[in-house]
């Protein structure tokens, strides 16, 4: 063994373990999706008060939901796959929430990230397809590009082109709590009963 070997080795190992621990949040996540999930569960995120318009052309803002939880998903109305499945699921959540009678009402909000194609007409058609009626289930789009960017940024939504004219995005159902904070990421493949249950649970302070 030579002089300086052990200190150098200790330095390299310490720095290496620290870097890996930092990037994996203490060896718990390896993907950015996992990191987002963990971060939101640890610290519910405040959301920007973005202006949107819904399928009926009514303007509203994210802050209007304060005091009641809302389940949010991100869509584009031409989406053939995940959004359709999510639309069906949201429909069932809506039925469950309105049918329960007692307990807090859950609102649903589907936000389009495709301002080029999703005008009010398109939102209306999408809403009709899944039986969405405002204000309990709004199909909405941000009023301007900066609002859209702020929303995607704060929810951690990454949209990339799918190479066939459509989009791919990291899908999740987002639970915004009664304080207007992004509190949970829910599995979009979970059964609607579970989504409704989790939303109700989170709405009780």
């Amino acid at each position: 063994m030579t002089r300086g070997f052990l200190p150098l080795l200790a330095l390299v190992v310490t720095a290496g373990v620290a870097a890996l621990a930092w990037e994996t949040e203490g060896f718990r996540v390896v993907t950015s999706a996992g990191a987002r999930q963990l971060d939101i569960e640890r610290r519910p995120r405040p959301l920007p008060d973005v202006r949107l318009f819904d399928q009926d052309g009514h303007a509203f803002s994210l802050g209007d939901y304060k005091g009641r939880p809302v389940l949010v998903d991100f869509i584009y109305t031409r989406c053939p796959t995940i959004c359709s499945a999510l639309g069906d699921d949201f429909h069932r959540v809506m039925d469950l929430a309105s049918g329960s009678g007692s307990g807090p009402q859950i609102d649903l909000l589907s936000i389009s990230f495709d301002p080029v194609n999703d005008d009010r007409e398109a939102l209306k058609l999408y809403g009709d397809r899944y039986g969405a009626t405002a204000p309990h289930w709004r199909i909405a789009a941000p009023a301007d590009a900066s609002g859209l960017a702020a929303l995607l940024q704060s929810f951690g939504v990454v949209v990339i082109p799918d190479g066939m004219g459509g989009f791919i995005h990291n899908s999740a159902v987002y639970l915004v709590d009664a304080h207007g904070r992004l509190a949970r990421l829910l599995d979009p493949d979970a059964p609607p009963q579970l989504l409704a249950q989790q939303a109700v649970k989170a709405s009780v302070p």
């Binding site: 030579t2 300086g4 070997f5 080795l9 390299v12 720095a15 290496g16 890996l20 994996t24």
Partner: peptide
């Protein structure tokens, strides 16, 4: 001299490549 048998150096390489495989 401190990089005895190349051990600290190659361990640094292992950490560096592992990091960028995440």
């Amino acid at each position: 001299e401190a990089d005895w048998l190349g051990i600290p150096g190659i361990i640094l390489v292992i950490f560096g490549t592992s990091f960028w495989m995440l």
